[in-house]
Amino acid sequence: MFSWSTIVENLPYLLQATRFTLLVSGLGMGLGLVMGIVLCVARLSPIRWISRIAALYVSFFRGVPLLVQLLLAYYFLPSVGIDIPPLWAAVCSIGLCAAAYIAEILRGALIAVPHGQAEAAAALGMHPFTIWKRILIPQALKISMPSLVNELIMLVKVSSLVSAVGIVELTRMSQSISAATFRPLEIYIAAAAIYLVINLALAGLGQALEKRLDY
């Protein structure tokens, strides 16, 4: 029998843990954006070795399963004497990985920014740095808005993996409750529903944002 009462009784705990899911994915996205912009600029750098390194970074972080990246960070940091709370290690891992994807999203968007715009700015005597900061990156961010929202939804989903390194977010919490109540089906379905609601909300928000940004 499907036990609704199990869900109702444990919902408060699940929602509490959801805050950490949001925290990990939100901070991961923030870090990913900052790093992603840097990586993207590096990737497009005319200096060969800089763009090579950026390309290598992107290829590594997109090629290795995130779970392996998380475990690697989990074992690696203590072994070199870096002692930061697991939560921050997880956020960093997610952010570093997201950066690789975001860099590629932005690179794609930059290609879509008409070439004449940078030329127009240069003709006005703008410094290349200013052109990037004021003309190219804002436009690339705008063009790539749908993909960036998608990336955020992706991060909410993959944040479930940080449960594997012991962080008590939504997935980890549902594991504990399932073990205690012996009702895994109900609890995991409830967790899935929470993830779904978050992601549908984000998708809706993204669409609204896209409309507002439309000229």
């Binding site: 939804i153 909410v156 989903k157 993959v158 944040s159 479930s160 993996l161 449960s163 997935t171 549902s174 594991q175 399932s178 009702r183 895994p184 089906l185 109900e186 995991y188 379905i189 967790a191 899935a192 993830y195 779904l196 992601n199 549908l200 998708a203």
Partner: peptide, 23 residues
């Protein structure tokens, strides 16, 4: 399509593997 794409793979696996026996 929306449900599967909107939920984590890990949770889907948990439902299937740990929740499956319930049904």
């Amino acid at each position: 399509i929306e449900v599967i794409r909107g939920t984590p793979f890990l949770i889907q696996l948990f439902i299937l593997y740990y929740g499956g026996p319930n049904i």
